[in-house]
Nucleic acid binder design. Structure first.
Length: 741
DNA sequence: CATACCTGTCATGTA
DNA sequence: CCTACATGACAGGTA
């Protein structure tokens, strides 16, 4: 519970940060006192917006930003509540090591640059800025990016419905939140946090490094008419949407150690592009990365974890009614109209979500993003065309992120969903076919159910008790030590014949050697044999006792076998004569002076010594040798058969175990798929909401068909032209392949 | 009587 | 080469 509380608190913190960033002042305590401890953490510093990790460290700094019920920001308030619920849900995720980061939006007061380049799309970042970000890797990334752009689009499996009409939220609800879902892996989470911090730090360094991307434009809510103090310096039109999305949904502790490469791996989200094929009611333009059928090269484990997280989120989701009200846009949403950006409309090319400013946030941005303000204006002034020609520069920035294609609107690339690249197989693609999986799983489950666990356990016990064919087994006839066999007839000889002959041998020995007779001759010596003294120990010589039929009863396919597996076990001492083996009869007929048991089981040395003690004819010696050979071979055959049987049983058990495991894995797979689907839906909704709240310098929403949010590996989210995003996505998809090689 | 199974035995190979 | 062992194949016994 403590951990849960902690997580919830963190979630609230993040949520609060988010709200504060968008200009909504919410006193979380007011709303959540019932469930959560007093939330006092407020992020006042702009750097905090940048630094995700600071969220966790900023506790006790919250001054209780509160939103008055009568506040004009009631809309935001409701939105906040909805988001809060989501945050809560995120906190409750049970998936270990799953980390969901929220997005931070901050305005870049400075660096606003009038978008002089029309129709190039919102070049959110200048080439220079991008290059700076990427640093030395730029050259490499550029090439990669260029190649991947067009292809990636094809692979984008946009499942999400077009967003265009749904966006009712005028204000961008970009909040910074980072959630850790794994309660059991707190340590891992901490590690992740560390990573995040590192990433943030790196991010912070960007501006100084020459990222001149940001155009600090404040957004004015054109729809609501709410005027956000446009703090755009100089009244420049540049919509420097400095939106930092810390939405690291898929970032999790990667056992494979790929976290280090995380920035470049966040492709899963990138690939999620809403498909236009979605129902009309859906927001087609806003593509949710997770909804796409194509999976990013992203770490599978992370995806799984995220998936689990989403599942949790779904389960925990509350305030649905409120959410729906706020979230669903009425038909004929104004956004559609808003999206129609005049081709000539100057677009701030430096707008990147990384530093994207939200209309609603403009007021408070200065407080939260001083860093942004301090960003070199040169970057903003230098609008880098987002046109493909500049893709290289963008690549450097996006190269680290696979999310480029994540938010691509399907419109741009109709093939996004359908052409989920054969060339770039989705890691999880196979998992997406739930129908198939379910079928398989059911099949396997049936198989599994068919297996009787009780029987299995019995088998196991049997194996354990009667392990095997090993000669060491007490049951095994071969277990007899040669010394025992030689020492006395009473030894637990494995051969009934030898034991039976023990009594006879004495008589034979007394009678003396008999002429050699062939096997055929020795046949039917039973009548000739005189009364054989009863030997109480006889029962001890039962052979094949290890093959107690009762043990086989557990095997269904052996139950029908009613044969006596006790071999020559004597039913009674009186029948001992008839139980004698042929060799025993022969030995008796040949008047062999010692028992077959000795003949068979004595060590070579002792055996030879024994033979030397007697004056045996050639026939007798031959018979003795044959008896020994056959006797040993008989035991060997028994052992061999037992071994074979054990092997079969073991195989059967293994098969059953594997079937169980398979069924279990299939069940888990189905659950994961389910979770993944939910997660994708969640991400889509979040994406749509964020995107819908973005406004250009004119306060108009961006067209999903022209722009997309790109999720960077460092946790930032950039608003980039779709073309670039597609290229990025394509490039990202290739990376994993190469890596595998 | 036919069949399936058990068991012993042989031949062969391996160590 | 001998010995011990393993194993496939065969055959006899049995239910």
């Amino acid at each position: 519970m403590l951990s849960l509380k902690k997580y919830l608190t963190e979630g609230l913190l993040q949520f609060t940060i988010l709200l504060s960033l968008i200009g909504v002042r919410v006193d979380v305590d007011t709303y959540l006192t019932s469930q959560l401890p007093p939330l006092r953490e407020i992020i006042l510093g702009p750097s905090s917006a940048y630094t995700q990790t600071q969220f966790h460290n900023l506790r006790n700094t919250l001054d209780g930003y509160g939103i008055h019920p009568k506040s004009i920001d009631l809309d935001n308030y409701f939105t906040a509540r909805r988001l809060l619920s989501q945050v809560r849900a995120l906190d409750r995720l049970q998936v270990p090591t799953t980390e969901v980061s929220a997005w931070l939006v901050h305005r870049d007061p400075e660096g606003s640059v009038s978008g002089s380049q029309p129709s190039s799309g919102l070049a959110l970042e200048s080439s220079s800025g991008l290059q700076d970000v990427t640093g030395p890797d730029n050259g490499v990334r550029e090439s990669e990016t260029e190649q991947g752009f067009s292809e990636d689009l094809e692979d984008l499996g946009a499942v999400a419905p077009p967003v265009s009409g749904d966006l009712t939220k005028e204000d961008i609800d970009l909040g910074a939140g980072r959630e850790i879902f794994d309660y059991s892996h707190r340590q891992k989470e901490q590690d992740v946090d560390k990573e995040l911090q590192d990433g943030v730090e790196q991010e912070d360094t960007w501006p100084g490094e020459g990222e001149e991307v940001l155009a600090p434009n404040l957004l004015v809510d054109g729809e609501t008419g709410e005027s956000f103090p446009a703090q755009v310096p100089g009244g420049e039109n540049q919509t420097a949407l400095s939106l930092e999305l810390c939405l690291r949904l898929l970032e999790a502790t990667c056992p494979f150690g790929e976290n280090a490469e995380f920035p470049a791996d966040i492709s899963s989200l990138t690939e999620a592009v809403p498909s236009e094929s979605e129902p009309p009611g859906l927001q087609n333009n806003l593509l949710s990365p997770l909804l796409t059928g194509t999976e990013s090269p992203f770490d599978l484990e992370q995806q799984w974890q995220d998936l689990m997280s989403i599942m949790e989120m779904q389960a925990m989701e509350v305030n649905t009614s409120t959410n729906e009200i706020l979230y669903n846009n009425p038909p004929g949403d104004p956004l559609s109209t808003n999206y129609s950006l005049a081709p000539n409309t100057p677009i701030n090319q430096n707008v990147s979500l990384h530093q994207a400013s939200l209309g609603g946030c403009s007021q408070d941005f200065s407080l939260f993003s001083p860093e942004v303000e301090s960003l070199p204006v040169a970057s903003s002034s230098t609008l880098l065309p987002l046109v493909p020609s500049n893709s290289t520069s963008l690549n450097s920035t996006f190269g680290s992120t696979n999310l480029t294609g994540l938010f691509f609107p399907p419109q741009l690339n109709g093939t996004a969903n359908d052409t989920a690249g054969p060339e770039l197989p989705d890691p999880l693609g196979g998992l997406l076919d739930e129908a198939m999986l379910d079928e398989i799983s059911l099949m396997d489950l049936a198989i599994e159910e068919g297996f009787n666990s009780v029987q299995a356990s019995q088998l196991k016990e049997e194996f354990d008790s009667d392990s095997g064919l090993s000669l060491d087994s007490s049951h095994s006839p071969s277990s007899l030590s040669s010394s025992e066999g030689s020492s006395s007839s009473s030894s637990s000889s494995s051969s009934s014949s030898s034991s039976a002959s023990s009594s006879a041998s004495s008589s034979f020995s007394e009678e003396g050697a008999v002429g050699y007779s062939s096997d055929s001759e020795t046949l039917d010596l039973e009548e000739v044999e005189g009364a054989v003294g009863y030997q109480p120990e006889y029962s001890k010589f039962c052979r094949m006792s290890y093959q107690d039929p009762s043990q086989l009863s557990c095997l269904p396919y052996l139950e029908h076998v009613g044969h006596n597996h006790t071999y020559n076990m004597a039913p009674s001492a009186l029948d001992s004569d008839k139980q004698m083996s042929r060799d025993e009869h022969r030995a008796r007929a040949m008047k062999i002076p010692f028992t077959n048991d000795k003949i068979i089981n004595l060590p070579v040395e002792e055996f030879n010594e024994l033979l030397s003690k007697y004056q045996l004819s050639e026939a007798q010696l031959s018979l003795i040798r044959d008896i020994r050979r056959r006797g040993k071979n008989k035991m060997a055959a028994q052992n061999c058969r037992k071994r074979k049987l054990d092997t079969i049983l073991n195989l059967k058990r293994d098969v059953e175990d594997l079937q169980r495991d398979k069924a279990r894995l299939l069940r888990e797979k189905v659950e994961f798929l389910r979770s993944l689907r939910q997660m994708k839906q969640k991400v889509q909704s979040l994406y749509q909401e964020v995107f819908g709240r973005l406004r250009d310098e004119n306060g108009r929403p961006y067209s999903p068909s022209q722009y997309a949010l790109q999720y960077a590996g460092d946790g930032s989210v950039l608003l980039i032209p779709r073309t670039l995003a597609d290229q990025q996505a394509r490039r990202q998809e290739r990376k994993p392949k190469d890596r595998r090689k």
